[in-house]
């Protein structure tokens, strides 16, 4: 991504064109971030729109243009969490009764009752999206920001207002929980076949 600092500075000064340019360059990233968090296209569109409206209203209060990326993800994370809370989503009520109670949704996705059947890339993608929604919110946020958005651990710690060690710990337990979900669905690395 090109250096966006001049654009951010112009937007902070109140230049609408600069803000629209920033939104154009960040819209797809933020949409995919919210989509992976919520796993629903329409809800992700709505939350992305809310994120940019909040950014539009508050951009002139941003003190440090260098923090724009972290600042935008703070707004997006808070919007996602608020949306989940308002929608009454509780994906993980307990470690034993929550996501581990979900069994074999891959059958619905793949349309097959053969667990040994190799999963194509698209099906695997859908399963992984579903599995991501079943791990705790805070762990999912860390995984999404680190693995998909390319934020560094200090940046994630800044976004979530937590220590770096807490962030790393959440990532570890999040990945572990994800492995458990996939194991419960009998999805092993051998079952995954990529169409590339």
């Amino acid at each position: 991504m090109t250096d966006e600092r001049p654009l951010v500075e112009s937007a902070i000064r109140g230049e609408l064109y600069a803000f629209n340019q920033l939104m154009k360059s960040w819209h797809k990233r933020i949409f995919n971030f919210t989509y992976r968090y919520l796993n629903d296209y329409d809800e992700a569109s709505e939350v992305t729109q809310q994120t940019f409206i909040k950014a539009y209203q508050a951009i002139r209060t941003l003190k440090d243009p260098g923090r724009f990326r972290a600042w935008l993800y703070i707004i997006a994370s808070n919007s996602c969490r608020a949306h989940s809370r308002n929608a009454g989503r509780h994906p993980t009520e307990s470690i034993s009764g929550g996501y581990l109670a979900e069994t074999e949704p891959w059958q619905k996705v793949a349309g097959s009752d053969n667990p040994e059947r190799a999963l194509a890339g698209r099906e695997w993608g859908e399963l992984l999206r579903k599995a991501l929604t079943l791990i705790p919110d805070e762990q999912r946020l860390v995984i999404l920001m680190k693995e998909f958005e390319g934020l560094t651990f200090p940046e994630i710690a800044d976004v979530l207002s937590e220590s770096e060690n807490t962030v790393k710990s959440r990532m570890y337990y999040g990945l572990k929980a994800l492995r458990k979900v996939l194991a419960k669905w009998n999805i092993t690395k051998e079952a995954i076949h990529y169409e590339e």
């Binding site: 109140g14 609408l16 890339g121 695997w124």
Partner: peptide, 22 residues
């Protein structure tokens, strides 16, 4: 495997026409 999860096509971004609030 997570890295292989592709991005989806996003809807077109909205365009703000009103001046940024002071």
């Amino acid at each position: 495997n997570l890295h292989r999860l592709p991005d989806v096509e996003a809807p077109p971004p909205p365009v703000f026409l009103e001046p940024l609030p002071a």
